[in-house]
Design a protein around this nucleic acid. Structure first.
Lengths: 254, 254
DNA sequence: GAGTGGTCTAGACCACTGT
DNA sequence: CAGTGGTCTAGACCACTCT
């Protein structure tokens, strides 16, 4: 008995352009991802097997597997031996990424504003030197910023960067986020180590953020590394918890 | 002129066991990871090219690539076109994972203790029903626990689970973490959506955690999904920020 | 037993990097 | 220019799940 036709990918207009410089597996994964987001591939639906999909597109099976695997890694698909490949139910919206507060706010439509309070070179304290793996007392950039949304202060951001890594223009810092400037300067961000906590506001912090002394604050320290393993940034940030919280999705490593 | 021998993998005793049920690429990636952790492969060192490594081990290039790629995904290696594969500098210790507080504490050698305050079935409130995607008023498990370390309260954990998913034994809940029980029950955790914030303690919370009223607290809400997309758990947790903070490493998605 | 994904091979050509 | 990783092919066999 022939199997009933239930492969939802047959309903899709999947095709690849072999003259494009975009890798074939990437073209396919993008189209599948778009179909999932658009709703053409409904959650729970079983994709047809890889061999048939490869034949239909004129691709080899490893290439199709690579496309599917990239979506599995993103959490959009689940593969089960002996069963098949399924679209995951429920929303997978924002996988955790190394996002800047600036990008977060912009994505939320909040039109963030930044006031640069300080942008100078200082001698590294013991703590900063340890975080950035530079000699204590050596020159580092220090940037202090106040981030506002809707005219209200939202966070106080203090960052230190190794000297000579990047030209930090105050105007640019007020127009965009630090990470964008670093990427634009050719720095390939690789990983970051974060610590998120909470504590009571001391008087200076309270005043900067328009809070009461002793008010709860959300804190984050982060050291960011580029792909050569250099520490490229150490941030000590304070957020008003009534205005901001950390929201993210994470995937369980298989 | 022959290239000078600088491939550090030639110094390693790499070998694969073809009679083992463990995949060849996995055997190789484990050995490379062990060499990196052990220091035999020093940060920044350039691995020899894939073809030679494959030939030396009697493997095909795709298999070697798969092994290397898994370590790239873990953040231990960096590949550059035209250059080679390098061991990343600096520590990559704990990539972010869906960890339970119990596991976190145990890993830190803190011998966590748990007191189950409540373990019962209740009707789902609107908030709980929405988080778990069940009907409002339907039966759900409610578990309230106090987590202690060194005899001091550290966190108050309130969790809701869909009814019938899991038998929640109070004794087991005091001996281990909720996630371990779920995994042991055959539930494959897939993803979670988290929100981390802060607020002031209300009187009831202050008393439970031995804090003052108004003291800053670290909060976390989390909905966990299994690989079929079902919400399997909703947690509302409160931490004493003087005793606990969220520490994790994250990788930049390429 | 039929169908699926998981693994593996032995090649090939291309794109990019650094000399 | 030589050497590297990035992509791709056309097969093969195995392990697992479900009926």
């Amino acid at each position: 008995m022939p199997k009933p036709e239930t492969d939802p990918t047959t309903q899709l207009d999947l095709r690849v352009d072999r003259s494009s410089p975009v890798p074939l597996y990437f073209q396919l994964s993008q189209q599948l991802e778009a179909a999932i987001e658009h709703g053409s591939l409904t959650p729970g639906s079983l994709l047809g097997n890889e061999i048939e999909l490869a034949a239909r597109l004129g691709l080899s099976r490893p290439t199709v597997r690579q496309a599917i695997q990239s979506l599995v890694d993103k959490g959009l698909l689940v593969r089960r031996r002996g069963v098949g490949t399924q679209v995951v139910h429920s929303q997978v919206k924002r996988p955790l990424e190394l996002s800047s507060l600036f990008d977060d706010l912009e994505a939320a439509g909040q039109r963030p504003a930044t006031t640069v309070l300080l942008n100078t070179v200082v001698a590294a304290s013991a703590e900063i030197a340890a975080a950035l793996a530079v000699a204590e007392g050596s020159e580092v950039h220090r940037v202090e910023r106040l981030r506002l949304a809707h005219g209200e202060p939202m966070a106080y951001l203090c960052n230190h960067l190794p000297s000579g890594l990047l030209d930090l223009d105050t105007g640019q810092l007020e127009a965009t986020g630090l990470y964008r400037l670093m990427r634009a300067a050719g720095i390939t961000l690789h990983s970051a180590r974060q610590s998120i906590g909470a504590r009571a506001a001391v008087p200076a912090e309270a005043e900067r953020l328009a809070e009461e002394e002793g008010a709860p604050l959300l804190t984050m320290q982060r050291t960011t590394f580029d792909d050569t393993g250099r520490a490229v940034e150490f941030g000590d940030h304070i957020y008003r918890p009534t205005r901001y919280s950390f929201e993210f999705q994470l995937l369980v490593r298989p």
